[in-house]
Design a protein around this nucleic acid. Structure first.
Lengths: 198, 198
DNA sequence: CTCGTAAGATACTGTCCGTATCTTGCTTTC
DNA sequence: GAAAGCAAGATACGGACAGTATCTTACGAG
């Protein structure tokens, strides 16, 4: 099924075309309907070509989703830790919506029996947000004097992301009120309890 | 493949035998390896018999797992809300371990596109714990005077379970220290912030 | 021009879901 | 206690899809 009147693509060009096709397939067919045959057909190529680059369905799925997520999102400096955390959680939620609830769960499922693949997923979908939280929110709050390094435990560091992820995974949607209740009823009180002036 | 020297089972007896077989299949083959063929073979019957009772793979999976979870677990009255919450979270964690990380994720995935089935899952795996938390923990704390009804928001009501579920789903394990940091660094501070004397 | 590499086509194995069809044993009813 | 009916159980099938093997062919490098 070679594409008519077109030369064979190779290397980077072909790889991008397949990732594009994969993303279209993901968007149109959903997580469960995402098939290697569909990807190959959309890309105007064949399965072995796809398999030469990604060893399995879940690998290319993660790759195509990761490739579509904005790489270096920023969180505006709102002047207070509350505003910054709300902004961060909003960014996190936007990223999750790009992935989708079913796909997020599906990838976590696929990955849960394979530590190798798990690393890839956690690296591209989880760690990035955690770093952003540290860099863009906590560091600024420390500079402002609202927070001290020693107020932060590991748990508090990841608390906002844990809560919004849970909300998204279980309920599928995270309305504005949910974000605010997470921040005002849980995160800020927990920070204050350790001495933060927030 | 009718079992030799045995009369045909019917009704309740057959149903239980299939559920037993399903649970064995689940334990031995895991979530991904759980197949209807396997269940039928183990139960000494055939697929149509299984399909007459449960309309799909995920239905019987949920049914067999739910049937193996202790129905009415109790949370000991430890005399303080902290102890009670730790105990509740420990119970929740034990239930989750019985299900397993992969199966939990897998069921959530399967269910995420079908509100009908979702209700069944949420009813048997989520609501039960929420009720337990209300009945066994918050009610007693209110009776003790540590807590007042109006201190409790919806978010705080489900906070302990949300956090332990997240921990289990993402990290696969919830060690004692995690439980304690959840309770001491997050849940109790959040309750105190709303006026609870805990 | 030749040669090697990778693209692309095709077909195959294997697995499993869900269903259709048929036989047969058990139970109920007259 | 025979006939009728119902559900159990066997078997086989259609369809989808993962992943692989094999072959041909375009194309770039030298």
């Amino acid at each position: 099924m070679e594409r008519k009147g077109a030369s064979r693509r190779r290397g980077e060009e072909l790889e991008q075309a397949i990732l594009d096709a994969a993303f279209d397939e993901f968007r149109d067919a959903g997580y469960a309907g995402f098939t290697m045959e569909g990807v190959a057909k959309r890309a105007g190529t064949s399965k072995p070509v796809v398999y030469r680059r990604w060893p399995s369905r879940v690998h290319i799925l993660m790759a195509c989703i990761a490739s579509r997520l904005p790489q270096a999102e920023t969180v505006p400096d709102t002047g207070s830790i509350r505003g910054d955390i709300v902004a961060l959680v909003t960014v996190a939620h936007r990223r999750m919506r790009l992935v989708g609830q079913t796909a997020m769960l599906g990838m976590l499922t696929d990955v849960s029996t394979d530590p190798e693949v798990r690393k890839i997923l956690v690296g591209s979908l989880v760690s990035e947000l955690a770093n952003l939280l540290d860099r863009a929110v906590y560091k600024r709050a420390i500079a402002r004097g609202e927070l001290a390094e020693e107020h932060l435990t590991e748990r508090l560091r990841r608390l906002p992301i844990d809560l919004v992820r849970n909300e998204f995974i279980i309920y599928g949607t995270v309305p504005r009120e949910a974000i605010e209740s997470i921040v005002d009823e849980v995160v800020l009180p927990a920070l204050r309890a350790r001495g933060a002036q927030v």
